[in-house]
Each structure stands twice: as structure tokens, then as C-alpha cells.
Design a protein around this nucleic acid. Structure first.
Lengths: 161, 161
DNA sequence: GCGACAATACTCGGATATTTCCTGTCCGAGTGTCCATGG
DNA sequence: CCATGGACACTCGGACAGGAAATATCCGAGTATTGTCGC
């Protein structure tokens, strides 16, 4: 199982949007150029983030994307689920109730051991992601990189070094 | 991201093989009929488990699959990685080094925050699966179901109820 | 009755089509900005 | 000089092809059994 690369794009882009000064929207064009990504395809994932209530989109010139909530209230899990879907990675097909060795339904009041184990693992995974906020992600960006990003987002000449 | 259903098959089948008395091999035909699965496709996953050193295969009549090691030494993680591959779910593409906002390589001595967060989640997930052995899975099967399985595996008439 | 041999039935293993989902792309709808024009 | 109207450029949003991976299937290679034949 490999998960969609859109997750990486969504996390980076959300973190970049979070670095924009208040009131400044970041267009998908800027995002795609900043990370060297195909603009049209990136748009698809950004739309998913809007539908999930992570970002808000503004049309027209000077438009673009903004955080729908403070960066401390958006978790990495939300971003992932917005793009990958909320369905658990493991979906029990109840094969124990099929075939010649089928277990009668009255003995299946509890989920089978396999699904329990997988559900716990899924829980651990999601729990780990839920404990990280976008603010944490931004904090992990080196300070001078953050400064350069801020300059680029405001439209000022990069200056760089 | 949904993970292959072959994982569920592999876990159930390995647990069933573990319920067979010592020296008794379980054929893929019995496994496929027991769970109502397509035999040829199930074979593909069983082969993967053999390659990974989880099961051993014996050809010929009375042949089939056996555990390669005691059930207490085989973890659920091994079975999953045998089928899904050992590659981590999240693979950092280093998009921070691409595009107009590329971070110079000398500033990338450490992995980016996104990949760190995803790696920790992956670690939590795998750790949860590594803490469960096949013996644990068998122990979660109801006792009377286990008894019936044992009878079926030895070729005796089901008896059932 | 016993041993050797051959035919047989059963097993696993790799190579081959089909379907599904992710990836990638395009064009249309809507909105704020900017400029030209008239007062 | 100021207000107004219109054209424009830029934005997002949903609908449309291409490709890789999972799904499903078939046929061939090898082995222990089993029955038969000869001694």
C-alpha cells in the first residue's frame, strides 16, 4: 500500500498557506510554481481540502486559498483524510462467514481478531497524525526559509541572499 | 489509500495454517474453499508469504503450506509486509527542493517536517502490528470454531453440530 | 507374500488478460481590477 | 478632477483521457501415492 502523493502536496501547500500574512490569499498558480507541481492536478487536491473545511477559496484577482481556521486547530490527519478519504485502510470483508468453513452469524457478534488488530493499528496511525497541527508543521520549517517564503508570498522581490 | 485485500486473506490463512496439527500441511485448495476465495489468486499471495519466509510449501499429494517458524515468532507485520511490500506508505518526494521556491541542498541536511511526521505515524502503525503474533491471532478465535477447524484440517468428517 | 516399477492424481509455481483507481489535462463560470470615457 | 461603465485578466470549479497497479485466471513442472506386475 502506498498512499497518494497528493497527501504530500496537501501538507506542504497547507503549511505554505499558513505562512502567508493574515488576509493574503495564495493562488494555486503560486503554489504549483513554488513546488514545481502540475497546476491543474494540484487544483484537484486543493478542491478536496476546501470541501473538507481545511482551506477557503477566493476567486478573482488577488484571490486564492486561505486557512479556514487557525493553524493550531487544523491537524495533519484532517488534511490526509481530506485527500485520501476517511475510510479505514483495512476493510474487513468478513471472509470468515464465507466458504465451506463459514462461521454461523450467531457466532459473529464480535468482530474477528484480524479486524480488531488492524483497527488498533489504524487507530495508532491516525492518532499519531491527529497529534500534529499545521502550526507544528510550520514550526519545523527553518526560520530563514520561513522568512523567504513570507517575502515571496507578499509578492515582494525575493531578495534571497 | 486502501490496502490490498490480500492482507486480510494472508492473515486469516496464516492463522488457519497455524491451527493445523504439527506435520499437517494445508493445501491452497482447502484454504480457498474454506474462505470462499478464488484459488488461483490466493495462490499469488501465498507465494509471497513463502518468499518472505512466513510459510513453507510442499508439493505433491498431502502437500500444502506449513508455518516456517513457531506461531509465536511470526508477527502480523511480517505477513503484511510480505504482501504489501516493505516500502513505507509515505515516500517523501522532496518537493521542497523543486520549483521556484526550491530550498538549496545545503539547507536540506535534515528531512523536512512533513516526512518526519509521516514517518512517525508509519512507525506507530508498524509498531502496533509488530506487537501481535500469529499465536495471538489464533487465541482470538473462539474455542469451538478452533475445534471445528482442527477437525476439518485433519480431513475428518466435519461433524459440526 | 514381497519388492520394484509405472501410471496417476494432487500439489505448487510462473506467465498472461482484465478491471479499477490514481495520475494528468483541458476548458468553462465567476469575480475583482484597471482603464477609458464622459461629465 | 471625479464618477461611471465596460473590457479584461486572473481566479477557482467540474468534466474528460492516459497509465500504472491491483485483481483475476490459465497452464506447465514436480512429487508422493497407489495400484499392478513380476519374482
Amino acid at each position: 500500500m502506498k498512499l497518494s502523493q497528493g497527501v504530500e502536496w496537501g501538507l506542504h501547500c497547507t503549511a505554505l498557506v499558513a505562512q502567508a500574512p493574515d488576509g493574503i490569499a495564495v493562488s494555486r498558480r503560486l503554489l504549483s510554481e513554488h513546488y514545481g507541481l502540475p497546476e491543474a492536478y494540484l487544483a484537484k487536491h486543493l478542491q478536496a481540502l476546501v470541501r473538507a473545511g481545511v482551506l477557503t477559496a477566493t476567486p478573482g484577482p488577488r484571490g486564492g486559498f486561505r486557512l479556514a481556521r487557525p493553524d493550531e486547530q487544523i491537524t495533519a490527519l484532517e488534511i490526509l483524510e481530506a485527500i485520501e478519504g476517511t475510510a479505514p485502510a483495512f476493510l474487513c470483508q468478513e471472509i470468515r462467514q464465507r466458504g465451506t468453513g463459514a462461521v454461523p452469524p450467531e457466532d459473529c457478534t464480535r468482530p474477528c481478531g484480524v479486524s480488531v488488530v488492524m483497527a488498533k493499528a489504524d487507530e495508532a496511525w491516525r492518532g499519531s497524525l491527529a497529534s500534529v497541527t499545521v502550526a507544528d508543521l510550520v514550526a519545523l520549517v527553518p526560520s530563514h526559509t520561513r522568512k523567504r517564503n513570507r517575502a515571496r508570498l507578499t509578492g515582494e522581490p525575493t531578495g534571497d541572499r
